[in-house]
Amino acid sequence: MENLHIANTDKFVEPYIQFVNKYFDSRQHTFLIFESKDYGEFINEYNNVYYICKKKDFVKMIMKLNKSDHIYLHGLFDSRIVALLYLQPWLLRKCSWIVWGGDLYRYKEKINSLKGTLYEHMRKIVIKNIGRLLPIVKGDYFLAKKWYKFKNSYKVVKYINLERNEYINILKRKEATNKNTINIQVGNSATRSNNHFEAFDMLSKFINKNIKIYCPLSYGDMNYAREVKIQGRKIFGDNFIPMEQFMGIKTFIDHLNNIDVGVFNNDRQQGLGNISALLFLGKKVYLKPETTMWDFYSNDNLRIFDINQINESNFKKFIEYSNEHKQNNYKIMKDRFTDTNRIAIWEEVFNVSES
């Protein structure tokens, strides 16, 4: 059984490779990787990872696509992959698409060119006929059905970071450090779907309070990141802290543990790693209620807050978060941060592929 994984170099993909190679037979899994500008090559070397860089690599990839028993598409962002699947429709039945969010929500983007129209036409054919959907958020399955007429089976999956899971559990058992400020994280990346400017407007009434605004901007649209940085500094001055360098997982978890409130004004599924870690660590999180993320968390009885409440809240109410809610969220999220939970999910995914 040969499982072929197609992905970009990304902070989520390398931990996933480590997870698969640790708990499953690595001889049955091959990873073909496109190098992304934001990330570069993976830190470690793997016997089953191959980079797609030259024309001859594409030829080998086409051969692999046809010879493999099952194909896992980790995100559907690359136009070359979409074109290859469109031109080889017989491959679609053995494809599983792990939906990342931005790849699905491209449907809502404005198209201003003939090239863009043709590309979206190819995407519609590919997505409609793809063999299986593996969304991280169940609501994205229903959007795929609505927008792209997707007609086959689905299963909700989870990505995993073994190092993160181990470290976050250690950190949870440590005593909290005393802080002099209320630390607020806004968004998860330099993408417009974070709607940073609207979030800044909501929070601007608290500029005279003892706050610091942290804003992750290390990946995404760097031109947009500069706009966010300028506006953040304009409103919050030195209390605005743009996070422009990529952090290792332990450093980033330390940062999240230092946050008091997470404000995610994202209008699509995005930033789940940040949000889940914050909930596990007992932090207050605001989300848009109309997103699939809202249902993803609230359906599990996690206590999250409507971002629109910020407009009506004074500072005390904005930061107020009971120990009861913290403990409730921790107990629910604890299961999500175990290897056992993820192993069972992916075991079922791979077993279905074999049948």
Rank of each mutant, 00 (worst) to 15 (best):
G131W: 00
V59F: 12
G139V: 14
L114R: 13
Y72L: 09
F42Y: 09
D57P: 07
K56E: 11
N66V: 05
V49P: 04
G75Y: 00
L84Q: 08
R93C: 03
L143C: 13
L91F: 09
M63V: 10
A144F: 02
L73C: 04
I52P: 14
M61C: 06
K145G: 00
H121S: 11
K110I: 08
R123S: 15
L73I: 07
W90T: 10
S68Q: 08
Y148L: 04
I43P: 01
C53S: 10
K60H: 10
F58Y: 14
I71R: 01
G139D: 15
V126E: 07
Y51K: 07
I111A: 00
E41H: 01
K128T: 02
W100D: 03
G131A: 03
I111M: 02
C53Y: 01
W97S: 07
P89H: 12
L118Y: 13
W147S: 11
T117G: 03
Y107T: 09
D69Q: 04
H74S: 05
L104S: 01
W147I: 10
N48L: 07
V82W: 11
G101P: 08
N129V: 05
I127F: 03
D140L: 08
K67W: 11
D78K: 04
R80S: 14
L76A: 03
K146T: 15
V137S: 06
K55C: 03
N48Q: 04
Y86A: 14
Y119F: 15
N129G: 06
F58W: 15
N129K: 12
I125M: 12
C95W: 01
M63T: 14
Y72G: 01
V137D: 13
M61K: 05
Y86N: 14
R80N: 11
L134V: 11
K145P: 08
F58T: 08
Y141L: 09
G101H: 02
K149D: 12
L114P: 11
V59I: 15
G75V: 07
W100Q: 01
Y86W: 13
I43G: 04
L73W: 02
W97M: 05
F58H: 13
S79V: 13
L91V: 14
H74P: 07
D38N: 04
V49M: 05
K54F: 04
I125A: 12
W100G: 00
Y107V: 08
G75K: 01
G75R: 00
K64P: 04
E109P: 01
I127W: 00
K115W: 12
R132N: 03
H121T: 09
G131D: 01
A83S: 14
N44A: 15
Y46R: 05
N44L: 13
K54L: 03
H121N: 11
Y119P: 07
Y72R: 02
Y86D: 11
K145T: 02
G102A: 15
G116K: 09
A144Y: 00
D140I: 04
I136K: 00
